[in-house]
């Protein structure tokens, strides 16, 4: 009996050693999961105001251009919310004053609360739509791509470390836990120093490269933020360009901005 117990103990030891090695894919580097957590915890401010110019181009070269203002506030789990955002349309002229409010839920399974104000209809309408795999504002990104995705929703593996002009990049493979998710995996290039992500590749359920997202970053008030995002859908040829400017952090945005009432008033 004793020997059996010994053998079991030895087996457990070997097993834990193996799983330890599995957790830390490259010796001397943090594990994939650890990197994902670090990226998730990267400082992004308490609130933010920014302007954006959206250029959507389809495969036939036709474009839609929109100019928006965005107000964003981090809720960090308060009231079960992760964040609230308010988007105001500056142009094109026929949709000016259209506003869009989103309360993002902390729980990945729960539906976000959304409202839209259409000035020509003169009504605020609540939109009950839960699908986080839906396109974000008609772009090539889905809601899930826009952050708010929890670390636990994927398993992360550090594939390799790359050097790009003296910058150290982690290449992370994130595979969704949930079956039948829109992506079969993501490859993420992560700047080891700033923890920003200059490039993400999305693979569809049939294993084909679906989208490539490239991002330029800038540091404002010690916070790294998007300056320009380009997403190219490799299957449809559709392209989204998002140019972000006038970024201001920690402006002490009031809660009243993120309410139905403020939707009618337009930009605060």
């Amino acid at each position: 009996m004793k020997t059996i117990g010994l053998w079991i103990g030895f087996g457990l030891l070997v097993l834990s050693a193996v799983s330890l090695a599995d957790a830390q894919e490259i010796p001397g580097e943090p594990s994939g999961r650890e990197i994902a957590v670090m990226v998730d915890e990267r400082e992004d401010g308490d609130d933010q105001i920014s302007e954006a110019v959206w250029t959507l181009t389809n495969s036939r070269g036709k474009t839609r251009k929109r100019h928006t203002l965005r107000y964003w506030k981090d809720y960090e789990g308060l009231d079960g919310l992760s964040s609230k955002s308010f988007i105001y349309f500056e142009s094109p002229p026929d949709v000016k004053d259209t506003t869009f409010l989103n309360w993002s839920q902390e729980d990945a399974e729960a539906d976000d609360d959304q409202w839209i104000y259409l000035p020509a209809l003169r009504k605020v309408r609540r939109i009950a739509s839960g699908d986080k795999e839906n396109s974000f504002m008609g772009s090539d990104m889905i809601y899930d791509d826009m952050a708010d995705r929890e670390v636990e929703e994927d398993t992360h593996k550090l594939l390799r470390v790359e050097q790009d002009n003296g910058t150290k990049l982690y290449v992370l493979e994130s595979t969704p836990v949930k079956e039948n998710y829109i992506y079969s995996k993501k490859l993420r290039w992560i700047n080891a120093e700033t923890l920003t992500e200059p490039r993400i590749e999305f693979y569809d359920r049939k294993g084909r490269l679906l989208k490539i997202l490239t991002t330029e970053w800038e540091e404002i008030d010690g916070i790294w933020n998007w300056k320009r995002i380009v997403v190219e859908n490799q299957l449809t040829g559709h392209k989204t360009e998002l140019d972000i400017s006038n970024v201001r952090f920690n402006q002490g945005l009031k809660e009243s901005i993120f309410t139905e009432r403020s939707l009618r008033k337009g930009a605060p």
């Binding site: 959507l56 389809n58 495969s59 036939r60 036709k62 474009t63 839609r64 349309f89 094109p92 026929d94 949709v95 259209t98 839209i116 259409l118 000035p119 020509a120 209809l121 739509s129 839906n134 396109s135 504002m137 008609g138 772009s139 090539d140 859908n233 449809t236 559709h238 989204t240």
Partner: peptide, 23 residues
């Protein structure tokens, strides 16, 4: 125009291709 904008939010960018072109 505002309905069309709202529609453009609701699905993939090329969802409406078969009935109306991009611009």
């Amino acid at each position: 125009a505002q309905y069309l904008l709202l529609y453009s939010f609701s699905g993939d960018p090329d969802d409406f291709d078969e009935v109306v072109d991009y611009d």
